[in-house]
């Protein structure tokens, strides 16, 4: 589904970025991406989403290179950033309809999906209001609905649970399972290690732009341990030493 090979991206005039990242996300995977603030999670996700270019390496989505054919790749995934700045001059429904138009989703299908997801997140009544009147959580819900509107096979999410109320977080987890059950995959960053441990079958830990651990959750988190203790051990070695 998603193959990242030796991804290297550095920002000009800065030593920040990521170096030699390699990951493989298969259909059915819910893949957690964890690390400190500034470790390189968002940079990696933005490279995958085609928002940032990169210096070296390759990103393939279902075998297609994001560099060579970004249009075909973008048709297959959806991306949500950590802070969803949406078009505040549009109403919620106008924004969803705009995204559906871009993905050329047939009218009947978009109506059906919007109704389903908006009801699940309980924001149907607010869809006629300007996005500028939305709270952070409502914007996050709208961004999630817009990401699901074209039924993507791959979801790339940056801190998707931030700002969501407990019920919406449960709904999102159910939706993630539903997508994976249908052969899709999810690659998301999070700081909530507890959620990552319970929700995901795979995990990658990044530190200072370098991947320091990745693989199946069972292999990384051994019996009697928790993801949190593993993370503290491998990613916060300055504290443990």
């Amino acid at each position: 589904m998603l193959r990242i090979t030796n991804l290297t991206k550095h920002y000009k005039g800065s030593n920040k970025g990521v170096t030699d990242i390699s990951l493989a996300i298969e259909p059915g995977d819910i893949y957690a991406f964890i690390g400190h603030n500034g470790a390189g999670k968002t940079t990696t996700l933005k490279c995958v989403a085609g928002i940032h270019g990169f210096d070296k390496g390759e990103i393939l989505i279902n075998g297609t290179s994001i560099k060579e054919n970004p249009m075909l790749c973008k048709q297959q995934f959806a991306y949500i950033p950590d802070n969803p700045d949406l078009y505040e001059y549009l109403t919620g429904i106008q924004y969803l309809n705009f995204v559906a138009d871009i993905f050329e989703v047939p009218a009947k299908e978009r109506e059906m999906r919007i109704e389903k997801y908006a009801n699940a997140f309980e924001i149907t009544a607010s869809l006629g209001d300007l996005i500028s009147s939305y709270s952070h959580g409502m914007k996050q819900k709208l961004a999630i609905i817009s990401a699901l509107i074209h039924a993507p096979k791959l979801l790339i999410l940056d801190e998707p649970f931030v700002g969501l109320d407990p019920k919406a977080a449960v709904v999102l987890k159910e939706m993630m399972h539903e997508i994976c059950a249908g052969g899709g995959a999810i690659f998301f960053s999070t700081h909530v290690l507890d959620v990552a441990e319970k929700l995901c079958n795979k995990v990658a830990i990044i530190k200072d732009g370098v991947l320091i651990a990745s693989g199946n959750m069972d292999e990384i988190v051994k019996q009697g341990e928790s993801l949190e203790s593993i993370f503290m051990e491998v990613a916060c070695d300055d504290k443990t030493n």
Partner: peptide
């Protein structure tokens, strides 16, 4: 900002990609 909070799902019109982008530019 005023939020009416009274939207009900209605029929949505499909537009071409260029049409959707142009409408967004206008708004």
């Amino acid at each position: 900002t005023t939020a009416k909070h009274n939207y009900r799902m209605e029929h949505l019109k499909k537009t071409s990609v260029l049409g959707a982008l142009y409408q967004r530019e206008l708004k």
